[in-house]
Amino acid sequence: VTTYKLVINGKTLKGETTTKAVDAETAEKAFKQYANDNGVDGVWTYDDATKTFTVTE
């Protein structure tokens, strides 16, 4: 299990959150659900070296 980070650069929501997941794909699903629940819809990137997803509106 690895800790992944999400950086949110939204129009109305900015911040960070983390999740523990077995792989990046599982973390991405959780983060996309989180973003959707919070009304954030943007461009996604992922940096494997830092295990960090970024979504920018």
Score class of each variant (00 low, 15 high):
T3C: 10
A24S: 11
K14T: 11
A35N: 03
F53D: 00
T2H: 14
G42I: 01
K32V: 07
A35F: 03
W44C: 02
V43Y: 09
V40T: 03
L13W: 14
D48K: 08
A24Y: 15
T2E: 12
Y4C: 01
T45D: 09
A21D: 03
V55I: 11
T17Q: 12
A30N: 10
A21G: 04
T17A: 12
W44I: 03
G39N: 15
T52C: 06
F53G: 00
T56M: 07
T54M: 09
E25R: 10
V7W: 05
D41M: 13
T45A: 09
G10W: 05
E57H: 06
K11A: 11
K29T: 08
G39M: 07
V43K: 09
L6D: 01
A49D: 12
A21W: 03
K32A: 05
A21C: 07
A49N: 11
F53V: 01
V40Y: 08
T50E: 08
A30T: 15
N38Y: 13
A35C: 11
K51S: 06
T12R: 09
A49W: 07
Q33L: 10
N38T: 07
K51W: 05
D47Q: 04
D37G: 05
K14N: 13
E25N: 11
V22C: 08
Q33R: 14
V1G: 09
K14V: 09
A27Y: 00
V7M: 07
L13I: 14
A27N: 00
A35G: 03
K5E: 03
K32C: 05
E16D: 05
V55G: 00
D23I: 03
D37H: 10
K51I: 02
D23K: 04
N38G: 05
A30Y: 15
L6V: 03
T50F: 04
T19W: 07
Y34C: 04
T54R: 05
A49K: 12
N9A: 10
A21F: 06
E28L: 15
D48R: 06
G10D: 03
T45W: 08
I8K: 01
F31W: 02
K29P: 02
K29A: 11
W44L: 03
T26S: 14
T2I: 14
N38I: 15
V7C: 06
T54E: 05
V7K: 08
T18Q: 11
E25C: 10
F31S: 00
N9G: 04
D47K: 03
K51L: 08
D41N: 15
K29E: 07
T45L: 07
T54H: 07
Y4N: 00
E16T: 13
T3W: 12
F31K: 00
G15Q: 15
N38H: 14
E16N: 08
A27M: 01
E16A: 07
T26I: 07
A49Q: 09
D23H: 05
D23G: 04
A27E: 00
G39I: 04
E16Q: 12
Y4A: 01
V40C: 04
T54A: 04
D47L: 04
A30E: 12
